[in-house]
Amino acid sequence: MNSIEVKNLSKVFGNFISVNNISFEVKEGEVFGFLGSNGAGKSTTIKMLCGILEPTSGDALVGGYSIATQPDEVKKNIGYMSQKFSLYNDLTVNENINFFGGVYGLENKLLKDRKKWVLEISGLEGREDTLTSSLSVGFKQRLALGCAVIHEPKIIFLDEPTGGVDPISRRKFWDLITDLSDKGTTVFVTTHYLDEAEFCGRIILIDAGILIAAGSPKELKKEYIKNKVIQLDCSDIYKAAEILEKENITDSISIFGNSLHLTMKEQIRSLNELEDDEIKIITDLLSNDNDLKIYHISEISPSLEDVFLYLVEKKTADEE
């Protein structure tokens, strides 16, 4: 069963195409990742799917209702957490829950139960009377999620829910998302963090309003990254990058924190199937330089970031 079916959806602002004819499906109970760089059109798409923005052309069925012709029906089945933090800062935790619960028509026992649940997932039990403005970002975000799904919608849309949140809070947030999905809720989530996308069942990538790839993280990696990726930690990564660049054995060299990711040329792989050899080649090359010390070198599985960078580069190259 598909929760969301998007067909040729477009949004044009003036003469700027923000979302360009995209189509995809989201299955029930799935965590669906929506990836793209700044200004790619993620928020615009999500707003159309929630019935906030009218599509310029195309349509989508959300929970079986058309966003173009039945936006009110759509709204009944969804929860939405916008990219901006969207609770009332000048209300207390309790007042925010009461307000959103009330607006969704919850009363008495049901409201009480759901309030308990929201407080529990946001970790705010005992802090009901705190002003929302004085909560830290992580708490706010979980409270916002709680309020957005207080009416237990079948489908929830989260627009960059973890922006500006520390790694531990992000992890907690994703645990919540996984829980919701396990209970059968469809979760549609946009993010900048490609490591988060690994938690998604399936993802799509858009760039400048155009859909450029779709599939599970595994499928995407397999499909687009055929080359071996080697991670290298050493005393001077810049120098190492300089040396390796001259040798013409890599497709790309990128810096990840304190280490280098080397995407090896395919030919090397076909010459010799043994991975040790590639590592050996690199080790030999670098040991010529006396100052350079290798701390760690190993093959790694490519990350989504590698996929993403590859795809965006490829698209730019194709356009030229």
Binding site: C50, I78, Y80
Partner: peptide, 8 residues
């Protein structure tokens, strides 16, 4: 924006 997606 949040209010628009509620039944209000």
């Amino acid at each position: 924006e949040q209010l628009i997606v509620t039944p209000i």
